[in-house]
């Protein structure tokens, strides 16, 4: 059993394109849930419209990739408005119900035979991101140290991904430290109090929903570009819950929470994936576990990790545990 290569796999997962993409989507969710207290259970829907915005624009309409990205972000704005206008005046639970349903509705719509001429139906669309990879400054080959290495394609997506993570985090940082962010946090604590002080709570919640949704769409667009394909069934509701796991792991309502959370989440997932596979290969578990079970077991371990976290650091890795002890009324 090559422990170094297993660890290498884990480290590769920590910094790989997926970690950056999930970090971006989790930053969007952090704006919703961490700073505004909006229960968005359909962040994957924003990723989906971002991804399909790119794919449909390029593969179906033959527009440029960059126009496609803008179309994806525009779709996220529209989706946020559609979700927000009817629900944001109501109690928080209604947004939760509407968003979780919207995610599934969109997935079924995009995979339906009706939408197939546009979206490719269940087969999705592919090979629409060539202009992105044509800009790749890294010559083909493998880059890295020892067991941690990436091909030039991944390295390019990673570079762009982590730069986006930094830029988006900076934007969110500037916003939440401003009086605007103060109102968001006030809305999270008590909507009525914010309203009694003359704040248009509905408008702030809408701005938050749009901003976080657009950030989610950036993640979705990058996800589509990374694999050069979109398929409706990769945008499951479970993705949203991975994002919540990431956010809670890192610490909701903190700037670095979603980033640290995504790094840890992807380390656990890829490390245990490699570890379990080689352990199964070496016959450690006998007939108890075979290769097909590994995918599920690593998420069991993520769940276990979350449970331990809730027991010992309930505010997340970066959260301030003092906040949880407060008598928040």
């Amino acid at each position: 059993m090559d422990f170094l290569s297993i660890l290498g796999n884990g480290v590769r997962g920590m910094f790989g394109p997926e970690a950056a993409i999930y970090a971006i989507a989790a930053i969007g969710l952090n704006v919703h849930f961490g700073y505004t207290g909006l229960l968005n259970f359909g962040q994957v829907a924003f990723m989906l419209v971002g991804a399909y915005g790119v794919a449909v624009s390029v593969a179906t309409f033959g527009w440029s990739l960059w126009v496609g990205v803008l179309v994806g972000l525009g779709c996220a704005v529209v989706l946020a408005l559609i979700l927000g206008i009817p629900t944001l005046r109501l109690r928080g639970d209604y947004l939760a119900i509407a968003t979780i349903a919207a995610g599934e509705i969109l997935r079924y719509f995009y995979r339906s035979a009706y939408a197939e001429p546009l979206t490719g139906g269940v087969y999705g669309l592919r090979q629409f991101a060539d202009p992105f990879f044509e800009l790749n400054p890294f010559p083909p080959g493998r880059y890295g140290i020892g067991p941690i290495d990436f091909d030039s394609r991944s390295l390019w997506v990673m570079t762009v991904g982590w730069i986006l993570v930094v830029l988006i985090s900076l934007l969110v940082f500037l916003l939440v430290r401003s009086p605007w962010g103060r109102v968001l946090r006030a809305v999270r604590e008590d909507e009525l109090a914010a309203r009694s002080l003359g704040k248009n709570v509905y408008s702030f919640k809408m701005q938050s929903l749009v901003l976080g949704g657009v950030i989610g769409a950036v993640g979705g667009a990058l996800l589509a570009i990374n694999v050069q394909s979109v398929q409706p069934d990769s945008y499951n509701p479970v993705t949203t819950f991975y994002l919540y796991a990431i956010l809670i792991l890192g610490g909701a309502g903190t700037i670095f929470g979603p980033i640290i959370g995504s790094i840890i989440f992807w380390f656990i997932v890829t490390f245990f994936d490699a570890f379990l596979r080689s352990a199964v290969g070496a016959g450690w578990f006998g007939d108890l576990i075979d290769g097909a079970d590994v995918g599920a077991i690593r998420f069991v371990l993520v769940g276990l990790g979350l449970m331990l976290l809730m027991a010992f650091r309930p505010a997340g890795i970066l959260g301030d545990p003092k906040e949880l002890r407060l008598d928040v009324r």
Binding site: R182, R185, A186, D190, A194, L326, V328
Partner: peptide, 10 residues
């Protein structure tokens, strides 16, 4: 408000 609405985590 009768039941005070302080914003606890501010």
């Amino acid at each position: 408000f009768q039941l005070t609405k302080t914003l606890g985590r501010l």
